[in-house]
Each structure stands twice: as C-alpha cells, then as structure tokens.
Design a protein around this nucleic acid. Structure first.
Lengths: 221, 221
DNA sequence: TGTACATCAGTGAACGCGCGTTCACTGATGTAC
DNA sequence: TGTACATCAGTGAACGCGCGTTCACTGATGTAC
C-alpha cells in the first residue's frame, strides 16, 4: 500500500527486506544454494562441502550460520513457507481486486498462480515441502512437522475461499470443501513431479488450468 | 484364468511368479527393503550397509546381485513399472467387465484405483517414480529417463480411454485429452505428498474420488 | 580523538566415522561323461 | 555310481574418499568512556 510519492525513489525490487548485513547476505546465499541442490538431488546428497564451495567460503563458515545440517533444513523450510504465504497473499489480493465475485476472483487467482508456478519451476524446479515430505526420515521431527503446518496454512486459505464461493454459487455436486481446498495443492505438487520427469515446464500450467476448468464446472460457470 | 481344479491346491498368494531360486529370492528381498527405505528417506540416505544388515547378509552379497548402487535403482524402477502396469491392467479389465460404457467403466476404475492406492500407501508410503524424479541428480541418466517412460505408459493408457469416452459422451467443456490423461497421475502423485505430510492415509482416496466427481461432471454424468 | 573491549563473520586444520567398491576366496549345488 | 569341473550365491577383509562436526584462532567492524 505504498503511496506514489514514497514509491518514486524505491529500487525496482526490494520486497520490503531490510538492507541486511554482510552475515545475513551470505546466510541467504547459502539458503539459496541449498534450496536448488535439495530439490535437484535430495537432502542427503546435498553436501555442506559443495554448498560452501559454491558460496566461496570455508566449511566452518557454514557452522557459524547454522547449528548443524538439520538447522539448515529448518531455516530453509521456514523461509520457504513465509515466502510462499507472501506470494499467495499478493495473488489473492490482486485477484480480489479484479472481481467482487469470489468465484471469479478464485478463477483469476488460479490463472495467475499457474503463471507464477511455471515461472518458479524454471528457476528452481521443485517444491521444497514435497522434497522434505519425500525424505522425511532424513530430518529430525522438528523439520518434518513443519511441512504439516505448511499444508494446514494452505488448506485454511482455500477452505475459507471455497466456502465463500459455495455460499454464492451453489455447487452442482456435493463435495467435501476440505478435499477441494487440499486439491489445489495436490495438483500443484503432482504437476511438479510430472513436469520434472517429462522435462516439460509447460505441463505445470496446463494441469493447473485443467483443474481450474473443473472448478468452474463444479460451481456451474 | 486358472480353472477351479488347478486352483484347488494352489497357495493363497502366488501372483503367477515362478518358484524362483535362492538367489532370485534374496535379490527380491533386497529390492523390497530398498523400496521402503528409498521412499522413506531418499536414495542417498539409503545405505547398502543398512539394506544388507536388514537382509541378514554381508555387503559383498549385495554386489553379487547388483553391479553398483545405481544398478539397484534401475532394477527397482523396472520392477516397479512392470508391477504397476500389471495392477492397472487388472483394474481396467475388471472395470470394463462391469460396464460396457467406457465412461462408466472409467469411473469404476477410478473407484477401484482409489482403494488400491490407499492400501498401497499403508504398505509402503510413496511412489517410487516420484521419489526418483525428486532426486534425479543422484542417479545416472539411464535411471532418470526410466521415470519418463513410466509417465508415457500411463499417459497412453488414459489418453486412449478418454478419447473413447469423448466419442460417446461429448464433454461439456473443451479440454486437452493429454492433459486430462496426465491429470490422473498428477492427482495420485500430489495426493501421496499430501497424505504423507498430513500423516493421513485417507486423504489419498478422498482426492482420487474428488477427481472422479470432476471427471463425471465433465462428461455430463 | 584515542584507547580498550566486544561482537561479527568468518579461517584452517584435524577428527573419526561410514560409505561404496574391490578382490581373493569358499562351500553348496548342478551337469557331463 | 563316481569323479571332474562349472556355476551359484555368497563371505571377510581391506581400500580410500568424503562427509558432518569441532575447536582454537583471527581480522574487521562497532561501541563505551
């Protein structure tokens, strides 16, 4: 909600982050490198040695920023969940601005989301939550229960929205609103697997849009 | 297609496998153990040491059966894909027996499949193809391109079926038949992630059935 | 403005463990004559 | 039926490498008086 005046001199991409000290910047850099490696190879196959080599520092520098390897995973997941919430908040806000009707806004949101997902898949191909879920025996319990909380956050967002839609647009068939809320995530996670194994990023958006068509049909678009 | 007479003395679970020599049995046992460990912890975190300890043999015994660790992954994936095709063939055959109409048969198939998926998730929680896809940088190229072939097999099966359905039941909306064919897998893989992270096996079947409702709606059930 | 101390952001060397892989060897079973 | 040889299904010891982690130390920056 920045005014035009205050936005005038702002740098192009700032995202509301503080300038951040030297330490914070290298920590973020390590997290970025870890993210890419974990979604590509998995957690166990991602070595600290490789991360610090890519960051151009010594291994002990890593342990200044992270208590141990599981601490890296925990911080990474926390950052991922927070960033994701921020992105979804932004998309939901934009969609709701464009239409008062919750169903139309939802359909707009799904279209925007399909684009964002495809773009994200090009940068780092994978979902961190799914990655951790698929290797949760490699993490301590604190890390793997974070994925559960992430899922609950997403479920809550969509469940609210879907009930709002149902109130205005009585659905053609009976369905479980929780299941439909979860379905958004299910399709996203599944489409990532498909896109990766088929090496075709466009599948991501195609699957999201197909689900969008189905949702529209359900509420009798 | 066993006759009643020949089935009389057959052991309860045989699955048409040959009696199998001693070597073949321990090899299968190693594959079973590897499967469970890989979907739980990932490939890199699954050590040969741990597998052979569980199988009650020495590490060199492993290398009698497998050229190296990647060979284990390759053989495991090949067996998984073959088993999966066999299961799907069986379910499709049963569904087609119960209804001549391809749409009805498909809906029956999805219901049967939802049950099988939930049951499988209880035994070993995960999809091997998704596991490998998410860690493909840990495997040699021969292994990771097997996942692509598995996806193509599944796509082909459902694409054929969906076109058959479309011919008899003109769909309510325009859609890409390939995308819908892929969607079956997308929902399965995504639902596994959800089920695992929420530690709720029933989500698997709920998601499959939701997709089933959507498919029915699409073809104007 | 200068000095003393504290915190920040690391370095470098060393550790012990476990991993994947190799290699020479072995007892049991199968096959040929 | 006995003997020679081949194959099967492994064993046991050893290898070297790389991993996660620790620890004592360090130069640069910030803060108090």
């Amino acid at each position: 909600m920045a005014t035009v005046a205050s936005a005038k001199t702002a740098p192009s991409v700032q995202l509301g982050e503080a300038p951040a000290g030297k330490g914070e910047r290298t920590r973020e850099r390590l997290l970025d490198l870890a993210y890419d490696s974990i979604v590509a190879k998995g957690f166990a196959a991602t070595s600290i040695e490789e991360l610090v080599a890519a960051a151009g520092m010594s291994k002990s520098g890593f342990f200044y920023h992270f208590k141990d390897k599981n601490d890296l995973a925990r911080q990474l997941l926390l950052r991922y969940i927070a960033e994701n919430e921020e992105i979804m908040d932004g998309l939901e806000a934009r969609a709701r601005e464009l239409s008062e009707d919750p169903l139309h806004a939802f359909l707009i949101f799904l279209k925007l989301w399909a684009e964002v997902l495809e773009e994200m898949l090009l940068k780092h191909p994978g979902c961190l939550v799914a990655s951790v879920t698929y290797q949760d025996a490699s993490f301590d319990s604190g890390v793997s229960c974070l994925t559960r909380e992430a899922m609950l956050l997403w479920r809550a967002r969509f469940q609210r929205w879907i009930e709002e839609i149902s109130a205005r647009h009585p659905p053609r068939v009976n369905f479980d609103p929780v299941a439909l809320a979860d379905h958004i995530n299910v399709v996203a996670d599944g489409a990532i697997v498909l896109s990766k194994s088929m090496k075709d990023v466009s599948l991501m958006a195609r699957q999201t849009m197909l689900m969008r068509d189905m949702v529209r049909l359900m509420f009798g678009g």
